[in-house]
Design a binder for these strands. Structure first.
Length: 466
RNA sequence: UCCCUAGUAGCUCAGUUGGUUAGAGCGGCGGACUGUUAAUCCGUAGGUCACUGGUUCGAGUCCAGUCUGGGGAGCCA
């Protein structure tokens, strides 16, 4: 018997009268006065469940069919039929209902067919995958990931798998998780009494990566256009709806590119992936618009149709100073923009994503390229309404002299950046790139307000369950 | 890490100035009903009121501490 995917059954890919088998989990069972039962079965292939009609003359009707509850697994064989009821075009007239797995105690099964809080679902991360909302998130996340790869591939980029384990402790993007095979109860010591990392697995201190950027630059300075897409780790004690200790990041790096080029790249990429979701996951987006965020679909459509506003940091400061709004943190040229400032600009002043450019050098990283004014660097952030910074990027300092000056200013040791400096010594070229937090993108697209609910098993301070 | 806030049935919540036996909806279970869309109707079971200590004749309610969650901030993606 053909094992049919529910998506195909609902799309009419099987002829009326054809006998097929669907396999999945019960969403709801409704018993009708006619002495028949309606089973809503989902298998993850699409948002909707298929309806199987189980007649009372099935041999196991009383003993099994009428005892089915939410999340029992079944294999239902039947003939495809046009539905007599409303709400679906096709349904299955069941001839065999085989129960594969019971729910052993329906009274305490955690996922009742009703609305649960996101916090409750998070505590049952292994079972929340069976809910409507997590199914929709999972499909949209997949759609976005595929669209990201497709976008870069079509533009001639190579996907580089940069290392997850790094010996470079100078990446400067945040606190790192140490990895080690040393016996914590009995650490080897040097003569001076320090921990002897030469005895560790790699013969030196190693960490989980906080960014693939520096590695990515080496390949951009050879392959011209590359991107990374992989897990990233930050050991910061950040407890917000926008931070994870383990998250996925997309980092394109482009040779022969300036700041304006990657600003355009960021805009093109965001529009491309949003368009993909609108066309490929209309079913899931309709659900988000209905249940999570009424503007979910219109917001994406507007993003696709708009052109992002470019704004210089210096001009943003002027706007904030003269807009008449009171801010908790005072605004002055040279200070970093606070969340409240970014929110005002993106949500109230513009009402759409903003590309903020050319920040003061003192509030930005060592590798960003110094502008001609000597005060600002070629950095850019994409600020999205509702979520804030979704992308951060810059043109990199490719001039060795300027780079060394900057290291010295910031009190950093040249020796720690020897291979990174080599890129500036041997055939250096202007290049630029950015980092996109993938969970922040999924959160923005779906309207699901917490990044912990758009990744399967979130890792946050104090929480690594499952 | 800081500020604010919450924790009551399997889930979502109500519970008055501290006062008799802590309630509802959903879900579960039992029953009714000629095709239902989170069906409907009737019945029924289900509670260490997060934990520890304190105030009081009396605490779900007031106080202190702890744990856990949420919102905001910082750091950032």
């Amino acid at each position: 018997m053909t094992h049919a995917v529910i998506k195909d059954v609902l799309a009419g890919r099987y002829a009326v009268g054809e006998s097929i088998t669907v396999k999945g989990w019960i969403r709801t069972r409704r018993d009708s006065k006619a002495g028949i039962s309606f089973l809503a079965i989902h298998d993850g292939s699409c948002f909707d469940a298929v309806q199987a009609v189980a007649p009372s003359d099935l041999p196991n009707y009383e003993a099994e069919v009428k005892r089915l509850t939410t999340s029992c697994s079944v294999a239902v064989t039947g003939t495809v039929a046009r539905s007599e009821g409303q709400g679906q075009a096709f349904e299955l007239q069941a001839t065999v209902v085989e129960v594969l797995g019971w729910v052993e105690n329906p009274d305490t099964y955690p996922m009742a067919p009703k609305r649960h809080s996101m916090e409750y679902l998070r505590e049952h991360a292994h079972l929340r995958a069976r809910t409507n909302i997590m199914g929709a998130v999972t499909r949209v996340r997949h759609c976005l990931a595929q669209a990201v790869h497709r976008f870069f591939h079509e533009q001639g980029y190579y996907w580089i798998s940069t290392p997850i384990i790094t010996g470079s402790d100078a990446e400067g993007a945040g606190e790192m998780f140490r990895i080690s095979t040393l016996d914590l109860e009995n650490l080897p010591r040097t003569d001076k009494g320090n921990i002897d990392y030469s005895k560790d697995f790699f013969g030196k201190e190693t960490f989980l990566t906080v960014s693939g950027q520096l590695n990515g630059e080496t390949y951009a300075c050879a392959m011209s256009k590359i991107y990374t897409f992989g897990p990233t780790f930050r050991a910061e004690n950040s407890n917000t709806s926008r931070h994870l200790a383990e998250f996925w990041m997309i980092e394109p790096e482009v040779a022969f590119a300036e700041l304006k080029d990657i600003a355009q790249l960021a805009e093109d990429m965001l529009k491309y992936v949003c368009k993909a979701v609108l066309t490929e996951r209309a079913d899931d987006m309709a659900f988000f618009a209905e249940r999570i965020d009424p503007t979910a679909v219109t917001r994406l459509q507007q993003l696709v149709d708009s052109s992002f506003v470019r704004m210089d940091y210096t001009d943003a400061i002027e706007i904030l100073k003269t807009c008449g709004k009171k801010f908790e943190y005072p605004v002055e040229w040279g200070v970093d923009l606070q969340s409240e400032h970014e929110r005002y600009l993106a949500e109230e002043h513009i009402g759409a994503p903003i590309i903020m450019q050319n920040y003061p050098k003192d509030i930005k990283a060592f590798y960003m390229r110094l502008n001609a004014d000597g005060k600002t660097v070629a950095a850019m952030d994409v600020l999205a309404p509702g979520i804030g910074e979704i992308i951060g990027g810059s043109q990199r300092e490719e001039r060795l002299e300027e780079f060394d000056k900057r290291l010295a200013e910031m009190g950093l040791d040249k020796e720690d950046y020897s291979w990174y400096r080599d890129l500036r010594r041997y055939g250096t070229v202007p290049h630029a790139g950015f980092g996109l937090g993938f969970e922040r993108l999924v959160s923005y697209v779906t309207g699901v307000g917490n990044v912990r609910d758009v990744i399967a098993f979130p890792r946050t301070p104090g929480n690594a369950e499952f």
